[in-house]
Amino acid sequence: MNEVRWGILGTGNIAHTFAKDFQYAKTGTLTAVASRNKDTADSFASEHDIELAMVDYYSLINSQEVDVVYIATPHSTHYELARAAILSGKSVLCEKPFTLNEAQAKTLFELAETHQVFVMEAMWTRFQPAIEQAIEWVEEGEIGDLMGIQASFNFKGPTDPQHRLLNPDLGGGALMDIGIYPVFLAQLFLGRPDFVQNQAVIGDTDVDVFEQIMLGWENGQLASLEASILSPAPNRAILSGTQGYIEFGSQWYKAKTITLVKSDDSEHAIEFDYEGEGYQFEIEEVNRCLEEGLLQSPNHSWQNTLNLLSTLDEIRQDMGVVYDDDETGIDSDELEHHHHEHHHHKH
């Protein structure tokens, strides 16, 4: 099959990391990048040796030079850009959160089905070697029955209220940007929870800045999760079972080490050696799925994304963090002229 040609929408931090890691993917070519600013597009293209620099997202989406569009723009733009890409027959890898809510995602997946286009949420962590190893150990019964999950994702975030992380118009807040990872981890192993609770701190811009989330399952499993954009932490994750536990190294979502500890305290540690941050693994997954003619990845399926957003919807509703797109629904005419009615809830 011909090399899959990739185009990147957006030139922020994540786009840079993705472009850097692209060289480590076994197949695929990075062909194009689009920004809303000519200088930014040009400098990104020259830095990452990309042939085409475009100054309009839609030029890239409609370009004949691109097979797959990687969407790395702010959360609030994902729905509209992914929709345009699907309608243009392009495969889509869209940064997490795939959309701002479950309803938007459902609409996009139905559209992808209709147009027979491959679409995946860019949950890069799912394809990291440490995660693959943990899945294998749990499936092999190495820790007995999985009972508990602890996971956190904290860092010292920006203070500028206009920054995408704090701006409700851009889908800001800790939950959608980083809390999504601990929730993803819990649901990867235990599926959609039966009980959802959280305690959140809402900042001055009406988005969440610090939260602890407790998920529970009917048959007795619990997940204790934390996210913060106020302060840093080692960001560890632990899977505990009846016969032992699995501990990820620091920054578990891209950990290079993982340890299996049995109930008799015997330890087995594995180190992973790979270049870059590990975005190449999700790139390879997309290329593989395209080669096999799949519309979704069996390893991070449409249902996985819907389940994730469904839980995030529930947590956000409880927190009182509301985005415009939650209120307008998904009618595409409505999307054209947003209703700017903010409902502010303070805790």
Score class of each variant (00 low, 15 high):
residue 54 M to R: 09
residue 234 P to L: 01
residue 323 Y to G: 09
residue 288 R to L: 14
residue 320 G to P: 07
residue 309 L to C: 08
residue 216 G to Q: 11
residue 86 I to A: 10
residue 250 S to L: 05
residue 249 G to A: 08
residue 252 W to N: 06
residue 299 N to G: 07
residue 195 F to L: 12
residue 137 W to D: 06
residue 302 W to S: 04
residue 331 D to Y: 10
residue 141 G to Y: 01
residue 247 E to D: 11
residue 262 K to G: 10
residue 123 M to P: 06
residue 41 A to D: 09
residue 107 T to P: 03
residue 214 M to I: 14
residue 198 N to P: 04
residue 317 Q to C: 09
residue 232 P to S: 11
residue 169 D to G: 11
residue 45 A to Q: 05
residue 156 K to V: 12
residue 57 Y to G: 10
residue 292 E to R: 08
residue 193 P to Q: 10
residue 192 R to Q: 14
residue 99 T to K: 02
residue 168 P to E: 02
residue 67 D to W: 06
residue 13 N to W: 06
residue 227 A to T: 15
residue 230 L to T: 13
residue 271 E to N: 13
residue 231 S to Y: 13
residue 62 N to Q: 13
residue 170 L to T: 00
residue 56 D to F: 04
residue 313 D to P: 10
residue 168 P to C: 00
residue 140 E to T: 09
residue 335 L to W: 07
residue 285 E to Q: 15
residue 317 Q to E: 15
residue 145 D to N: 13
residue 308 L to K: 03
residue 165 L to S: 05
residue 299 N to K: 12
residue 218 E to T: 11
residue 218 E to K: 14
residue 308 L to N: 11
residue 183 V to N: 00
residue 8 I to S: 02
residue 26 K to H: 14
residue 64 Q to P: 12
residue 119 V to W: 02
residue 154 N to E: 14
residue 126 R to A: 13
residue 98 F to E: 03
residue 211 E to D: 10
residue 300 H to K: 12
residue 159 T to I: 12
residue 255 A to K: 01
residue 282 E to I: 15
residue 222 L to C: 06
residue 12 G to C: 11
residue 127 F to E: 10
residue 269 A to R: 13
residue 102 E to Q: 14
residue 45 A to G: 09
residue 205 T to Y: 00
residue 155 F to E: 11
residue 330 I to T: 15
residue 323 Y to E: 09
residue 35 S to L: 04
residue 330 I to K: 00
residue 57 Y to I: 02
residue 242 T to A: 07
residue 185 L to F: 02
residue 202 I to S: 00
residue 331 D to P: 08
residue 288 R to D: 13
residue 174 A to M: 09
residue 96 K to M: 10
residue 37 N to W: 07
residue 303 Q to M: 12
residue 167 N to H: 11
residue 331 D to E: 15
residue 81 L to Q: 15
residue 24 Y to D: 10
residue 283 I to E: 05
residue 45 A to S: 15
residue 168 P to Q: 04
residue 10 G to D: 08
residue 131 I to T: 08
residue 86 I to F: 10
residue 323 Y to I: 01
residue 267 E to I: 02
residue 233 A to V: 02
residue 59 S to M: 13
residue 325 D to N: 12
residue 256 K to P: 06
residue 81 L to Y: 13
residue 133 Q to D: 10
residue 275 E to Y: 08
residue 293 G to Y: 04
residue 113 E to F: 05
residue 57 Y to R: 01
residue 245 Y to R: 13
residue 144 G to N: 08
residue 129 P to E: 03
residue 183 V to P: 00
residue 5 R to H: 03
residue 237 A to V: 05
residue 79 Y to K: 11
residue 247 E to V: 07
residue 212 Q to T: 14
residue 135 I to G: 01
residue 61 I to G: 09
residue 340 H to T: 02
residue 134 A to E: 05
residue 159 T to P: 07
residue 324 D to W: 09
residue 132 E to F: 00
residue 42 D to M: 03
residue 236 R to F: 08
residue 259 T to P: 04
residue 296 Q to R: 07
residue 141 G to K: 04
residue 197 Q to W: 12
residue 23 Q to C: 08
residue 62 N to P: 03
residue 300 H to M: 12
residue 21 D to Q: 02
residue 240 S to I: 01
residue 87 L to T: 12
residue 179 G to D: 07
residue 195 F to M: 14
residue 223 A to P: 07
residue 165 L to N: 08
residue 279 Y to M: 14
residue 267 E to C: 08
residue 83 R to I: 03
residue 225 L to T: 01
residue 187 Q to W: 03
residue 142 E to I: 00
residue 201 V to H: 11
residue 252 W to T: 03
residue 234 P to H: 02
residue 125 T to N: 04
residue 17 T to Q: 14
residue 79 Y to P: 01
